[in-house]
Amino acid sequence: MIIHVKNLVKRFGELVALDHLSLDIKEGEIFGLLGPNGSGKSTAINCILSLLSYDKGEVEIFGKKMTPDAYDIKRDIGIVMQNVAVFEELTVYENIDYFCGLYVRNKAERKRLVEEALAFVELEDFRKFYPKKLSGGLLRRLNIACGIAHKPKLIILDEPTVAVDPQSRNKILEGIERLNAQGATIVYTSHYMEEVEQLCTRIVIMDKGRVIASGTKEELKAMITLGEKITVETFSIDEEQLIKLRELPGIVSVEHVDKRLIIKSGKGTNNLETVLDFLKTHEIGFGRIYSELPTLNDVFLEITGKQLRD
């Protein structure tokens, strides 16, 4: 086990930020920590890294107890903060070199690592730029380079794609997959379920400082009672037809919102053909029609009764 967290409790006065949080992260996986803003993801990361003291619980990294003085553990950890944490006074190259220098003393080796990190985040052409001159996406990439230049075994990325354009986001996600392929264990926190779904091999969904569900994305989706969701673009359907549609076998709910008919099916059922037959039989005109499997948002919605982005 790379990270073992047991019954972690962190309070900020009256507020319980982490409520008996337990996690196990295995070597080589991309572990996703998913939850809405304020769910306790960053607090959990800070407690795991001993950047925050906690009230109760245990944290072990690489099988050893994590403390603020556990420098041998810290040597193999790379951290990418939620906010860009670089020195405005240093160039791109100098920033990476400085943070790499905190881990690697050998100058020649450090130079090689910095060059590799620059190439990894594709910032070679910006090496002499000061952070002020970089766009948001490039800054995020610099932030990542500063955290991974020393080739850590465990990389913790705390919402690294916040306020990043889609192109840069894709580059970041690709980069994370490559780091994992090179052997690093990744802990990825985000409130973007699409990213977590795309990237992570195992996911923990958090809310109010607690783990509300965990597993692979398939396992998480299997937890809920919902099956596929069929959306039909239709202009006219009357109330009577809606009631008849709801009565079809395997249909859980039917809604008509903004000229769109949203039909949710029960788990394990396939109602696309049935719905199409119904529309034809009742001569209901329709445009596009598409079917989706449940998302992590549906999982979160079913468990907590609210949207992930609430």
Binding site: L51, P68, D72, K74, I79, V84, A85, V86, Y103, G147
Partner: peptide, 18 residues
Amino acid sequence: VFNKRDLSRRNFCSPMRA
């Protein structure tokens, strides 16, 4: 500059002793 929260956290995450 050094006491900026995220920068100082990054420094104290490293194996360099406080």
